[in-house]
Design a protein around this nucleic acid. Structure first.
Length: 595
RNA sequence: GGUCCCGUAGCUCAGCUGGAUAGAGCACCUGCCUUCUAAGCUGGCGGUCGUUGGUUCGAAUCCAACCGGGAUCACCA
């Protein structure tokens, strides 16, 4: 169902035209519309080339015939012209004026409820290292998609899975035991996740040293990498953890507690939250029974004591689901966790996993397995797959220390916003606290918008200089436009009371351009939701405020003497502010009242 | 090697359910603050849409091959 009200108006008329002119029954999908190119007169263009077989005429006569019919039968079609096979329709100014008038102060970007409940998983960090730039793309994406789904009428459950178990956390624990000297976040003021991450690095260093020593004493490299004493010790610790050793468990809880405190601080600054947090220490036991059940049903098979699934018919491979010793693999717990989620949330109709595209194959296999197990919801699973974030220096590699830390980056962008803001010296009446709030908003808008404006599916380059830019196609640019409108609206409070109930009879081209972008916004939002793609929404928001800036520059609002025109422009400005604020909300970005 | 993704202006990206002369931002050059916030607005420069074929009235968009880049294919997570 199209969200574009003009298309909704035109399609039945076109169907009637085809019936009458060509004796042909056309489906609504047969018609596509495009915006008329600026060099021709008109607002909407229909390309008639696809209809030549139906009409049995050449392009011009076909377009001409349809145009005549539409003009006669659709009130808002004022005029039309034909250029080659293109039928350009001029929509009456009254249509656009009515649209704006009727929209008034309602939320253009809140679509009717679907009655559906959707789960969105994002973030999903490991507890051995702090969040970095890659997580930021993941988190902002997942958060924005959640908001977009809410704006399109869904109930959303936000979840994350924290990978809190396994060899990686044992490495941090062991290194802390050995070298930590009881260092805690409280004792040294280091954020908990940073502290634990520090010992993960310590472990790595110690192990490298041991491996080198072993190689020096004649052990082959491969052997050395498996036999480093500290690694064996970490593996022993993992076994103790699995055996519920009280000391190991206590240390594990303590250190994970530090990490969670650290993560929560980071999430808070990011402005994101979760309704339900899963821990792998709980979910890693799931799935085993489901796999055995599938084995019984003949969906899976046994070979060499292990349980396998054969996906070769579907163009994929065979895959182990239970090892010959009966233990689980990663896939096993993902099967179990998905099942558990639909049990826990019986109203759930969709489940969206925000995970990097290096796991495309994993999710293909997972979804296929769940389909084979016969779960009715298996067709409503989506992998929201996103590309890696590269640095100008190349790929981010934790081993080479080229990872961009999330906390550091947020601090940098906020500082950059402060530097530029103070240079402009227009915030003199702001208190220190208000300034701090504003710079926080601007800095965060810069990074978030920078990461969200690019199509999530694609790998992207993170240019630190560009990410703190406040000009051009950026979040702060949009914020600035919003703040400027708000400033304008603040001066109209007394005017609003006795605002004219009359409307102008015509619109200026600058006004029209803005109105059309507003008009199209719900369709963009709905497309964004369908494709789980915030970038299209981000780009449209930019186009809207850019057009508004053009209008603002050349058309007086408060200085307009004709009260009818003035009030109309105030209404237009208010509508743009409203839509911008909501669109930015969908992106997880706040907008300031002044800046 | 099998499978999947990506190649558009100097740089970063839109456009991709086929449609008119391929668009933005940054950078560079240029003009606009006694008028509603110049974090803004004008104008200019800049393109064999990776290459070659094919389908079509029409291809950046669809198909194939090739070139270049990346990911993935463990009884790892």
């Amino acid at each position: 169902m199209s969200q574009d009200r003009l298309h909704v108006l035109l399609i039945p008329a076109l169907q009637a035209a085809f019936q009458q002119l060509f004796d042909h029954v056309a489906t609504p999908e047969a018609f596509t519309f495009q915006a008329t190119r600026p060099e021709f007169e008109g607002d909407v263009t229909i390309n008639v080339f696809p209809f030549l077989k139906i009409s049995g005429k050449g392009p011009e006569p076909t377009a001409q015939a349809i145009g005549v019919h539409l003009q006669a039968n659709v009130e808002v079609v004022e005029r039309f012209n034909v250029v080659k096979g293109f039928l350009n329709l001029k929509i009456a100014d009254g249509y656009w004026i009515d649209f704006l008038q009727n929209t008034g102060d309602q939320d253009l970007l809140q679509l009717p409820s679907t009655g559906k409940e959707v789960m969105v998983e994002y973030a999903s960090p490991n507890t051995n290292k702090p969040l970095h730039l890659g997580h930021m793309r993941n988190i902002f994406l997942g958060h924005s998609v959640s908001r977009i789904l809410e704006a399109t009428g869904n109930k959303v459950v936000r979840v994350q899975v924290i990978n809190d178990r396994g060899i990686h956390i044992c490495k941090s624990m062991l290194a802390w035991q050995k070298y930590g000297k009881d260092e805690t976040p409280e004792s040294n003021g280091l954020k908990g996740d940073k502290l634990v991450g520090k010992y993960y690095v310590e472990f790595d260093k110690a192990m490298k040293q041991e491996v080198q020593d072993l190689i020096a004493s004649g052990t082959p490299k491969e052997e050395a990498e498996k036999q480093a004493p500290i690694l064996l010790e970490a593996q022993e610790m993992l076994r103790k953890w699995e055996g519920n050793d009280p000391d190991v468990r206590a240390l594990w809880e303590r250190m994970n507690g530090w990490v969670y405190a650290g993560f929560n601080a980071t999430y808070e600054r990011m402005g994101v939250a979760f309704d339900r947090v899963y821990h792998e220490s709980e979910t890693y036991v799931l799935g085993k029974n489901d796999v055995l059940e599938g084995l019984k049903k003949g969906v899976f098979y046994e070979k060499d004591g292990a349980v396998w699934v054969d996906n070769t018919k579907e163009g994929l491979d065979e895959k182990v689901l239970l090892r010959s010793d009966g233990t689980s693999v990663y896939m096993t717990q993902d099967i179990g966790t998905a099942i558990k989620r639909f049990e826990e949330f019986p109203g759930l109709s969709r489940l969206i996993y925000t995970v990097g595209n290096e796991q495309d194959y994993h999710f293909k296999v997972l979804f296929l397995i769940l389909k084979k197990l016969g779960f009715p919801w298996a067709n409503e699973l989506h992998h929201l797959s996103y590309g890696m974030v590269d640095l100008p220096t190349g790929k981010m590699k934790s081993r080479e220390g080229t990872v961009v830390d999330a906390d550091d980056l947020m601090e940098e962008v906020v500082q950059a916003a402060r530097t530029s803001g103070e240079q402009l010296s227009k915030l003199d009446e702001f208190s220190e606290e208000e300034k701090a709030q504003l710079f926080e908003m601007i800095g965060m808008a810069a990074v978030k918008y920078y990461l969200l404006k690019v199509d999530a599916k694609k790998r992207m380059l993170f240019d630190p200089a560009a990410s703190i830019d406040l000009q051009g196609h950026t979040g702060p640019f949009i914020q600035y436009t919003y703040a400027r409108i708000k400033s304008l609206l603040r001066r109209t409070e007394d005017l609003v009371k006795n605002a004219s109930s009359q409307v102008p009879s015509t619109v200026l081209s600058e006004e029209l351009e803005v109105i059309k972008l507003l008009h199209h916004f719900p369709a963009v939002l709905s497309g964004s939701a369908m494709a789980l793609d915030p970038s299209s929404l981000a780009n449209h928001t930019y186009e809207l405020v850019k057009a508004y800036n053009g209008f603002y520059q050349s058309v007086p609002v408060l200085k307009e003497e004709d009260p009818i025109k003035r009030d109309f422009r105030i209404g237009l400005s208010r509508a743009v502010a409203l839509a911008t604020k909501k669109a930015m909300w969908c992106l997880g970005i706040e907008v300031p009242e002044r800046m």
